[in-house]
Amino acid sequence: VSEWTEYKTADGKTYYYNNRTWESTWEKPQ
Rank of each mutant, 00 (worst) to 15 (best):
4 W>T: 01
27 E>D: 12
16 Y>A: 00
28 K>P: 14
11 D>K: 04
28 K>S: 12
17 Y>Q: 07
6 E>S: 05
24 S>Q: 11
21 T>G: 03
10 A>Y: 06
1 V>Y: 15
4 W>P: 02
21 T>R: 03
17 Y>A: 03
6 E>Q: 08
9 T>M: 05
14 T>P: 08
25 T>G: 05
8 K>M: 11
29 P>W: 06
9 T>I: 02
30 Q>M: 13
24 S>K: 14
14 T>R: 03
4 W>M: 01
4 W>D: 00
24 S>V: 15
3 E>V: 06
5 T>F: 09
28 K>I: 13
5 T>V: 14
30 Q>V: 14
25 T>N: 05
17 Y>E: 03
22 W>M: 15
28 K>T: 08
21 T>L: 05
19 N>H: 12
10 A>V: 11
12 G>A: 00
23 E>S: 04
24 S>L: 15
1 V>N: 12
21 T>D: 05
3 E>F: 08
13 K>H: 08
7 Y>L: 13
14 T>E: 03
14 T>M: 08
14 T>G: 01
28 K>L: 13
10 A>Q: 11
8 K>E: 05
16 Y>W: 15
19 N>W: 12
10 A>L: 11
12 G>I: 01
14 T>L: 08
26 W>Q: 09
7 Y>I: 11
28 K>G: 06
6 E>G: 02
10 A>T: 08
20 R>W: 15
25 T>Q: 12
27 E>S: 07
25 T>A: 13
2 S>D: 13
8 K>H: 09
12 G>R: 00
13 K>A: 07
28 K>F: 09
3 E>S: 02
26 W>E: 11
12 G>K: 00
18 N>H: 08
5 T>A: 11
8 K>S: 07
7 Y>E: 05
10 A>E: 10
13 K>P: 00
16 Y>L: 01
6 E>T: 06
6 E>F: 04
3 E>Y: 07
21 T>W: 07
14 T>C: 03
15 Y>P: 00
3 E>R: 02
22 W>Y: 15
20 R>K: 14
16 Y>I: 01
24 S>T: 15
23 E>N: 04
11 D>W: 08
21 T>H: 05
17 Y>G: 04
29 P>L: 04
2 S>H: 10
8 K>V: 13
30 Q>S: 14
3 E>C: 11
12 G>Q: 02
24 S>I: 15
13 K>W: 07
8 K>T: 13
2 S>Y: 09
17 Y>V: 15
2 S>N: 11
25 T>H: 07
11 D>M: 03
11 D>V: 02
11 D>S: 08
8 K>I: 14
20 R>D: 12
6 E>H: 02
11 D>E: 12
4 W>A: 00
24 S>W: 15
9 T>G: 12
5 T>D: 05
2 S>Q: 11
26 W>Y: 13
18 N>E: 01
7 Y>M: 15
19 N>S: 12
21 T>K: 01
